[in-house]
Design a protein around this nucleic acid. Sequence first.
DNA 1: AAGCGTTTCAAACTTACGTTTTAATTTGAT
DNA 2: ATCAAATTAAAACGTAAGTTTGAAACGCTT
Lengths: 213, 213
Amino acid sequence: MEASRPDTATRILDVSERLFVEHGFEATSLRMITQQAEVNLAAVNYHFGSKDALFEAVFMRRLAPLIGSCLSELDELEAKEEKLSVEGLVMTFIRPCLALSKDPARGGALFVRLLSRTLVENHRLLRETISQQYSVFVQRYTTAFHRALPELEAEELAWRMHFAFSVMFNAFAGNDVLKIFMRSQIVSARDPDMIVKHLVPFVVAGLLSPIES
Amino acid sequence: MEASRPDTATRILDVSERLFVEHGFEATSLRMITQQAEVNLAAVNYHFGSKDALFEAVFMRRLAPLIGSCLSELDELEAKEEKLSVEGLVMTFIRPCLALSKDPARGGALFVRLLSRTLVENHRLLRETISQQYSVFVQRYTTAFHRALPELEAEELAWRMHFAFSVMFNAFAGNDVLKIFMRSQIVSARDPDMIVKHLVPFVVAGLLSPIES
DNA sequence: AAGCGTTTCAAACTTACGTTTTAATTTGAT
DNA sequence: ATCAAATTAAAACGTAAGTTTGAAACGCTT
């Protein structure tokens, strides 16, 4: 009763997702990918066209559903409540990330790491393909946060959103700045529920901090 | 009265720092470096031994002084005050980063971006060479934050420090998660003073957020 | 069973990489 | 001025990268 072996293209996507996270795009060769996926070297170019196109495919397979989930949560929240709470708003982003992190069938926490890496590495993909397609995501959150924090002017709000999403992305991505130096101070660092338990209060407090004169 | 041209090794370091930030370690070739630095291809291996050693040299040239500055500020603060304020503590880290960001002669904001990239890319260098040498940095800040926030248990404190340094690193590195989607919402995003003005309240509020039951 | 589009495969191609080698050149102390 | 050491230079080495090719194998309809 073993799970049927996924087809070639899916096996390539799964292996690529993991290797791109582990070693980065440039340092991951098609020979590493095809070897671990147990497919022929030429299969990548046959199914995806090029290494760049493969990266885009790996990326979009996860990003589109994730953004879709966030927007659905946002729809629900905005329909339900007149006054949006900051914590409720933060959770519309956290919950889909959390669900993704806990679902091995969808790559688990791997994709969020990939997303984080891709942001930092400033890939062409993000500047070109994605930016136009998903500006709606940022627009929706910007207006929602504006409703939740009406006393903040636009620029101050943009800064706080920048900081908030920055720390959330890095938390889910497991980019532990301090872990590198101290020896596993936090044993539960990779438990997604633990992340949320500590992350949400921190982010909410930052977003709600009193306005500087 | 033009500035005297730096020597070969320095020119290589300067160019490498910029290219490693722009394209990453793997995607930056020695031929790109030596061409832009106007030195012979073999100069890198002559002066530094290998590409890996070059990266370490680029990295250590900035990191050692930066960490030194932070620890000096920490010394001053701890000597001066009995009770450490969270904001004062945060500023011992912010001020050296800010000074570095504003000093083109020391690479400006480039190095903080490189540091951020290197953290995310999880380089060997960080796991091996740096981790032992600079664990004192984390130790010092951990005990200092413990003094400033004595009511937090060790694990909660570790989480908050993780989040705080994460957002600070990304702010200075200019890793604007949302900038990619929205068209230059924040015009002053690259002004280091503006970063601090908005960053410090956010981080301090997160660190000081009430303890969850 | 035959035919046909799709997929897989082994192999080769071109290019670029990091590194090494060897000779030429510059530098600095005697 | 001389000589030894340090540095620069040009060229080549071996390897590995992404991609392409053309034939073989497969799956499906007729």
